[in-house]
Write a protein that binds this DNA or RNA. Structure first.
Lengths: 222, 222
DNA sequence: GATGATTTGTACGTATGTATA
DNA sequence: ATATACATACGTACAAATCAT
């Protein structure tokens, strides 16, 4: 891309730290960086060809996202993500989603309900067409909208953060038509409960939805 | 302040960034730094007599804790903490504590139950003695133990984070004997439900406890 | 137990993009 | 519209505390 441009000065606004953070995140989650590996600033500066400053920021992010931990005077180490840990994450996410569903059922505006229903309909089409990429993006929006409908900033933030934390493990999970169809069915129950303003049903439907997602992810694990 | 230093010996291991972060946190929460104030690195370096690096780190922390927000090319601004925002925080915390209580009631080990009961008894004494400092510390431990008894790392982390986020607003709230006594009464109901392994009662008792705490904090607000 | 390597926090300079006067 | 101030990200250098040999 940027090769024969007469401007040899690379735009500094490249957010190296962010890019490095997601790069490392990928490698940790994919297993290429094994648990216990030392992420020492020195090597990383050489590997990414940048100075320590952006590396430090990236490591801060990884630690904040619990993908690495800093041991005093030992360095930053890749955390050990066991099957049990993933189960716990999904369990927590299930309860948070259920909580959000309960609140949303009571507080959604008529506009929010209409928009969610429409999004759900569009997702049905995507599932039928097998457009997994669009479905994945829409799925994130679907859950985000439910969070938003709680009208509680802290719940929204908390739910989004946890979802983000889980994202790496869920990656490409919806790539299969079969899973998309099942997801869409489960969404049907969720939407139905929300439109009916039924907190209990919404809660249960979302909890089940997450159990289902967890099963899918865990099935692909060692 | 830091002007005529001939050779400002940088006393290193002092964790400047952390200290600066909590100092600023105090000022934001206490209202000495008003909403919208610009936290520009330049002025802060002079005020704290350090370079921009630790200031940067401190600002990252404040932004992460939602006490400030970074507006591109505008700087870091102190967020506006309205009464409504505090209500939302307590509402969210109430649901999270209730959730933890429900899980804990089912999963607490017999050892954990015994220790919680003992802590509760010690807290009764502290309340009777009016030892508010000890009570405050013990109270944090009390709730932390309930979180821990969920045996779900993510719930524990999430609950502790939210509690930390609320801490500034709750500060010194238990300083009054009256509030301590009421707190202890409410803890009684919580402990009772947990010892009986009654998830529903634990859930409700914790939710009520938070409503009570919120009322106390909000009563002192403009 | 002294020495050197490592980790970590900090100081300061610089380049570049954005906003504002 | 141009110039100036400013916010931001990165680079480099150093000091100090700890760990390992």
């Amino acid at each position: 891309m940027a090769s024969s441009r007469p401007k040899p000065k690379p735009a500094h606004r490249e957010l190296h730290s962010t890019m490095i953070a997601s790069q490392l995140e990928n490698e940790i989650v994919s297993g290429r960086l094994k648990a216990g590996s030392k992420l020492d600033e020195q090597s990383l500066t050489q590997r990414f060809g940048v100075s320590r400053t952006p590396i430090r920021e990236a490591l801060h992010v990884l630690v904040a996202r619990s993908l690495a931990e800093r041991v005093p005077y030992r360095g930053v180490l890749v955390v050990d993500i066991t099957r049990d840990r993933i189960e716990q994450m999904f369990e927590a996410m299930g309860e948070i989603e259920a909580l959000c569903g309960r609140f949303a059922a009571e507080r959604m505006t008529i506009g929010e309900r209409g928009e969610l229903e429409e999004l759900h309909r569009r997702m049905n089409t995507m599932a039928a067409d097998g457009d997994s990429e669009a479905y994945e993006a829409a799925n994130t929006e679907f859950h985000g909208r439910i969070f938003a409908s709680t009208h509680n900033e802290d719940l929204i933030e908390l739910a989004n953060n946890l979802r983000l934390k889980l994202a790496p493990f869920r990656r490409s999970q919806l790539r299969q038509a079969e899973r998309m169809a099942r997801s869409s069915e489960e969404h049907e129950a969720i939407v139905s409960a929300l439109l009916d303003r039924d907190p209990k049903r919404a809660e249960k439907a979302l909890r089940r939805h997450l159990v289902s997602a967890a099963r899918e992810v865990l099935a692909r694990m060692p």
